[in-house]
Design a protein around this nucleic acid. Structure first.
Lengths: 346, 346
DNA sequence: CTGAAAGCGCTTACAG
DNA sequence: CTGAAAGCGCTTACAG
């Protein structure tokens, strides 16, 4: 069997208390003894059992990461950042894919509590408070990542969605577009609403108003269909702002199926800047989220909370940035799809 | 604080032993008492602490998943499959990205052992046995997923790499290609070697021999560069078999940068069939791995081992399948890139 | 049918 | 400078 603290104590001819003290670098023990015991530990291949350590009231050095789906590239990248930063602070992470279902989220939250995790990072959408509340009441530190829940004071890190939407609008308008459309996520997703709001207000400030019919929200799978409807309207938009890259890819496909060329016949701009964006054809111009930084900040918030519970809930807002690739360009008038008047800027 | 078994015992007026028995559905306890105690548990919101449970010699209901990088779509999809099947059996999973570095793998392996996980699924490349051995010697159940380590008897699930390579060759040859190239992964990756072997032998059996210069192995980042070199050779290949989708994407880019059209000027075929494959332009024809099934089988192997240690190490080989999209086609002679004799079949 | 007691592998006051 | 003892929240024989 694996060596326990008793084995090394016996081997060293001391009590387990002494061994415990050297493990934790505590107490006043002669440096010689300390070193001697350390040697014995490595010789015996002794590693303290973290579960015993945890039972004794200390931490489990594990936390949970709730995401909609770990196989979604955005969350996979988030997970990597969280894992690395967690590791840096000594934590392991449990992955929990919820498919954005409150029920699954609740189930995972309860499970994580039973496992006595030191905290949980929530990056999944939640309709109800019923997933957050048990955690909060159980005194489990929580940090929100790329998600918010207005009514509760929980530390969170988000990208400035409004600014992201604004940047998209600015780019499109500077390119000379004036018939703008938006492919949004479900109404319930606050980040998506903010992106649309930023996009709309910035466009309007520039004198470009969004046709109500041109702003549509999509479910998980119907991005392509919605985009196609958009592109089939008369006086169709010359540019589409998509609230995430997956949606943008749907739009790309819709356009391709209709025989349109991107960006000549229609500009498309995405949001997130995951691997996918660099791989599509054409590569996506998109609003980049600082994914790595977001993951890092989230675990830092969580770790701070674990260290000093009851701290004030900080809210970190990170700036997005525009990544220009090739899916957005100056609108052209010579395409067979542009049979309408276009006020092309300079 | 959270309720403990003592709290519910007191509330129910029984001993903690009795409560424990009803928790575990053991012992002979009158159905009324049992039910009464159950009610009390739900009323008090009592959930047994899994860490105490684990200390008592039972399981932690957690296992580790070692992958090169969770943000790599292939492994992200693997992780999702593993998570779901794990969940189905009552296990949570720790993610561990190793970047294919033995040192990181060893570190994670040791950590997982300290955390007393019930097992670990290894899906990361390892150069040395030094990562596997401590686990094996520590009696930690292990299952290999999409990776093998010849010299040790560990349950594993892999795709039939040879057959995958063969399928790629068959497809390309049936399309009429005769100047075939291969973009392989590092020599050390056994699955890649097998794919190349299957590809080569099948081609040769059909009378098509691979130019030695046309078989190159790439590191993590230089797929595009290697592909470009390939495409710049005189008598350049008309088709490239890439040992994973990422490499194929590199080849796609190389071709695009050189002004070549895919598949008209060169056919490209990948391996894996992750999300990426369906998003590129043109969408990738690729050899699909049954990712979900692989993940499921791996956890089943692991769970079986946890249940009955010392079982014989089973090796499960799953068949790959060809997913035809648009990156491979009949070689054309009219391209400016095809200035050379081509024996185009039928 | 149910309780007392030991034990899992640690940590932490408390003595000395 | 170091040890004896209690305790973390459970499970498991062993009695009765």
């Amino acid at each position: 069997m694996k060596a326990t603290i008793y084995d090394v104590a016996k081997e060293a001819g001391v009590s387990i208390a002494t061994v415990s003290l050297v493990i934790n670098g505590k107490g006043k023990i002669s440096e010689e003894r300390r070193e001697e015991i350390r040697q014995i530990m490595v010789r015996m291949g002794y590693k303290p059992s973290m579960i015993a350590t945890a039972l004794t009231g200390k931490k489990t050095y594990a936390f949970g990461l709730l995401v909609p789906d770990i196989s979604n590239p955005f969350f996979a990248e988030i997970a990597r950042a969280v894992e690395d930063e967690g590791q840096r602070h000594g934590y392991s992470v449990f992955i929990c894919s919820t498919d954005n279902k409150d029920e699954k989220a609740r189930h995972y939250a309860a499970l994580l509590q039973q496992k006595n995790v030191d905290g949980v990072i929530i990056s999944t959408g939640m309709k109800e408070l019923s997933v957050l509340n048990p955690l909060l009441q159980g005194g489990v530190p929580v940090a929100l990542l790329a998600r918010e829940f207005p009514s509760v004071a929980v530390p969170s890190v988000v990208v400035d969605d409004y600014a992201g939407g604004a940047a998209a609008a600015e780019h499109l308008i500077s390119l000379g577009h004036s018939r703008l459309a938006v492919l949004a996520e479900q109404e319930s997703i606050s980040s998506s609403r903010e992106r649309v709001r930023g996009f709309r207000q910035t466009a309007e400030a520039a004198g470009v108003f969004l046709e109500p019919l041109f702003v549509v929200s999509c479910g998980h799978k119907d991005g392509k269909d919605r985009a196609m409807e958009l592109l089939q309207m008369k006086d169709r938009p010359t540019a589409i702002f998509c609230c995430n890259d997956l949606l943008a890819i749907g739009a790309l496909r819709a356009a391709k199926e209709m025989g349109m060329r991107i960006p000549q016949d229609c500009s498309i701009i995405g949001f997130d800047d995951t691997v996918l964006a660099s791989v599509t054809d054409p590569p996506l111009t998109t609003i980049a989220q600082p994914i790595e930084q977001m993951g890092q900040k989230a675990v830092q918030l969580l770790v701070r909370q674990i260290g000093q519970p009851g701290e004030e809930a900080e809210r970190i807002v990170l700036p997005p940035s525009l990544t220009i690739r090739q899916s957005a360009a100056v609108p052209s008038n010579d395409s067979r799809y542009n049979h309408l008047d276009e006020k092309t800027s300079g």
